[in-house]
Computed example of a mutant assay.
Amino acid sequence: MAQTVEEKATAAATGASATERFQVDKTHASDTPPERVSMLARQVLEAVHATIREHQVTYAEYDALKAWLIQVGADGEWPLFLDVFVEHVVEEVANADREGSKGTIEGPFYVPDAPAFSAEATLPMRPDEKGTPMTFHGQVRAVDGTPLGGALVDIWHCDDDGFYAQFAPGIPQWNLRGRVTADENGNFTIHTIQPAPYQIPTDGATGAIIRAANWHAWRPAHLHLKVSADGHQLITTQLYFPGDPHNEDDIAAAVKAELMLDPRPSGDGVDVEYDFVLDPA
């Protein structure tokens, strides 16, 4: 019997894809000065040491930790684990001084160089793509209100089953991914489908710690975006849908009130509007 996408979209396969993408795309990660590496590494280790002393960690617990850390690497899940449990604090610090739109985490499923489209576009999708049709539109402006003509709206999201193209089998390469160039007034319109909530992959090492701690693994439905314009700071963000049961307890702690959409019925689908305000570079 043929396997379903759900049966084949394992944590190991997803983790391997995320690790490969990180190694290809994040080449700037080695530019940190040695003194900064030393300071950060020391403080992280000191926090670990303090936790061990405070909670009287046993050798059995220490060995379990070692085994788990080894398995995270073997499963290729470091991008998944770090993006779910750590990135939201890095993003908070990095964007603390922005005056424009709120950002949030990128997550492990971004792929650069998606197909390019003009200001009104339909994202690539299968002829029988499941889900509620959605029109997403808005304007990109500077903090002083000036429309940013030619701004780039890079969008990606999961399908109605909660899977991302290039991170689960059987999905076309650029499904529900695209780069849309706004018109001369900064306006854009994107036709797609409404994404679904999903569980992060749980059959690997990340899932093991989630089960051991009796946590849940759900992310609320969301759109991913990177919005940029010449002379302005790129913003990486996600937009969420009201009423999702996991808006309040997102496993990745990435939901912010400012990122909530207001869907309106439209024909057989929904219409959502959201404007982006970019800070100067």
Score class of each variant (00 low, 15 high):
78 W>T: 06
66 K>P: 00
162 G>T: 02
251 I>S: 06
161 D>Q: 13
62 Y>P: 00
242 P>M: 08
186 G>F: 09
280 P>H: 14
278 L>D: 13
47 A>W: 08
189 T>C: 14
226 K>N: 14
39 M>K: 06
39 M>I: 03
129 E>P: 02
66 K>W: 12
119 A>T: 11
114 A>M: 07
198 Y>S: 03
88 H>Y: 15
126 R>T: 14
235 I>V: 15
179 R>H: 05
8 K>M: 13
88 H>K: 04
229 A>T: 10
238 Q>K: 15
192 T>F: 07
99 E>F: 11
271 D>P: 07
213 A>L: 15
193 I>Y: 06
193 I>E: 04
130 K>V: 01
248 E>M: 02
38 S>L: 14
12 A>P: 00
59 Y>C: 05
182 A>P: 00
198 Y>I: 00
174 W>V: 03
171 I>W: 01
246 H>L: 00
274 Y>R: 09
198 Y>M: 08
21 R>S: 06
159 D>Q: 02
50 A>N: 09
263 P>A: 08
262 D>N: 15
252 A>P: 08
206 T>G: 02
203 D>G: 02
50 A>R: 03
83 D>P: 00
237 T>C: 11
275 D>K: 13
64 A>L: 13
172 P>T: 00
277 V>E: 12
96 A>L: 14
108 P>T: 02
133 P>F: 09
143 V>S: 12
211 R>T: 15
216 H>K: 09
255 V>D: 06
75 D>T: 04
24 V>C: 01
65 L>S: 12
171 I>R: 09
87 E>K: 02
170 G>I: 03
263 P>N: 09
80 L>R: 02
251 I>R: 11
90 V>R: 14
249 D>R: 04
246 H>N: 07
177 R>P: 04
33 P>A: 15
258 E>G: 14
255 V>H: 03
50 A>M: 06
264 R>Y: 03
215 W>D: 11
70 I>K: 14
148 L>V: 08
42 R>L: 10
215 W>C: 04
80 L>N: 01
85 F>K: 07
229 A>Q: 06
107 G>D: 03
